[in-house]
């Protein structure tokens, strides 16, 4: 739905990094490079951003 505030495993705050990450990847850059740039080292935090599907824009249309 919307990016979780923290990493599920280690608890690092990753919510504020998602839009920067998505914007860079959208430009066609390698996700690995962007994640390294954002300083996300552990693979638990990296999967939070890599595997996220942003659905709030889809859901928001149907609110009465």
């Amino acid at each position: 739905m919307i990016i979780p505030v923290r990493c599920f495993s280690c608890g690092k705050v990753i919510g504020d990094l998602y839009y920067k990450f998505a914007e860079e990847v959208q430009k066609g850059r390698d996700p690995k490079e962007v994640l390294d740039e954002l300083g996300i080292k552990r693979y638990c935090c990296r999967r939070m951003l890599l595997s996220h599907v942003e659905l709030i824009d889809e859901v928001i249309k149907y609110k009465v």
């Binding site: 990016i3 705050v13 504020d16 998602y18 839009y19 609110k63």
Partner: peptide, 15 residues
């Protein structure tokens, strides 16, 4: 708040 840009929720017109 430590991290200033964490999204909480998205609001539509007049919400």
């Amino acid at each position: 708040v430590v991290n200033k840009e964490v999204p909480i929720v998205k609001l539509r017109d007049n919400e």
